[in-house]
């Protein structure tokens, strides 16, 4: 991978490399200026081969329609029109929007509190807790979904059995009303630690002498955390929100596992990505699935951009 001849490495970057013929070009510059491109080349080649090329192929697929009778025909943007007017897509988007509105603030709130706690002087065994909170992220999401599916079980699940032993009723966590909170719980459990680590790392960059100055001014640790630390790690918080938005709309593993445990609740259009999967592999509409994938990507981009614009405006107003 690293032993690429310079000619090959340079070819895809021809547009980006500075001209050698113009004045002030590479002539006279050290040959080390080519080195960064050589270092990037392995990643770029893999990126082009496994990310960009499939996307181009999907774009190509989305412009045609394959029919059982009549073969493949060019349909232009018809597939996109079909997808955008499909109620199944908007149902999925609605489910995910509801999911995101509940789950993201709760998860980031908990992650922020945990990060601040770990960063403060109040806590003992910091390294242990840092690892312990992060551990759920190391569990593969399929395994996590399977185990939580068992935990939620209305007959065998420990919650249900415990509630029954105490004489209380437990809600059916796998019913239609509870499915979104149940899924939100699994995702929160998995990703709180991940976000906490990002926020904790950002907190390390806050200068220590600020804390002393604040205490001299009479601010307690809580006030200091809220008024000084949190605004200073704003970029990290925004980053976490963007990741969470993207992750929310890409939610696939957990609903798919739950679909085999509670098939009456999770239909094949419960989330947009589940719908794309079933379009491709059950309905065999690869063209529609390709169009849908681009539309989902567009929705995620729009929502992320909207959030960034909001955040920037709030920043400007301060």
């Amino acid at each position: 991978m690293t032993a690429l001849p310079p000619a090959v490495a340079r070819a895809p970057l021809a547009g980006a490399a500075p001209s050698r013929r113009g004045r002030g070009g590479l002539r006279g510059r050290a040959p080390g200026a080519v080195a960064p491109y050589l270092f990037l080349a392995p990643f770029l080649l893999l990126f082009l081969a496994f990310q960009v090329a499939p996307m181009i192929y999907a774009l190509w697929l989305s412009l045609f329609r394959e029919r059982l009778v009549g073969g493949t025909v060019f349909v232009g943007l018809d597939n996109y029109a079909d997808v955008l007017t499909d109620p199944s897509l908007w149902r999925g988007v609605g489910n995910m929007a509801l999911f995101g509105l509940i789950q993201v603030p709760v998860m980031l709130g908990i992650a922020l509190v945990l990060a601040l706690l770990l960063d403060s002087a109040l806590v003992r065994g910091r390294a242990f807790f840092r690892t312990a909170f992060y551990l759920p992220y190391a569990v593969p999401s399929v395994v996590a979904a399977l185990v939580w599916g068992y935990l939620y079980g209305p007959v065998f699940g420990p919650f249900a059995q415990g509630a029954e032993a105490l004489g209380l009723g437990a809600p059916n966590f796998l019913s239609a009303q509870w499915m979104i909170p149940s899924l939100a719980n699994i995702v929160t459990w998995q990703f709180t630690g991940y976000n906490m680590v990002i926020l904790f790392a950002a907190l390390q960059a806050v200068p220590r002498d600020l804390e002393e100055a604040a205490s001299l001014d009479g601010a307690g640790p809580a006030a200091f955390a809220w008024h000084v630390k949190v605004p200073l790690i704003r970029p990290a918080i925004i980053l976490c929100v963007i990741f969470s938005i993207i992750g929310t709309f890409q939610l696939f593993n957990e609903p798919r596992i739950m679909a085999s445990i509670a098939p009456n609740v999770i239909g094949d259009d419960y989330t947009p990505t589940l719908y794309a999967f079933s379009l491709a592999f059950t309905s065999l509409r690869f063209d529609l699935a390709a169009a849908l994938s681009f539309v989902i990507g567009l929705i995620v981009a729009v929502v992320s951009y909207a959030f960034l614009a909001l955040a920037a405006r709030a920043e400007a107003r301060r």
Binding site: P263, N264, G267, T282, S283
Partner: peptide
């Protein structure tokens, strides 16, 4: 039908939800 996977999937989603509700 020549597209029985799709038919079963539609039946499963629509009838399953109707029965449960």
């Amino acid at each position: 039908s020549p597209f029985q996977d799709f038919v079963f999937s539609e039946m499963s989603t629509t009838l399953g939800a109707a029965a449960a509700e």
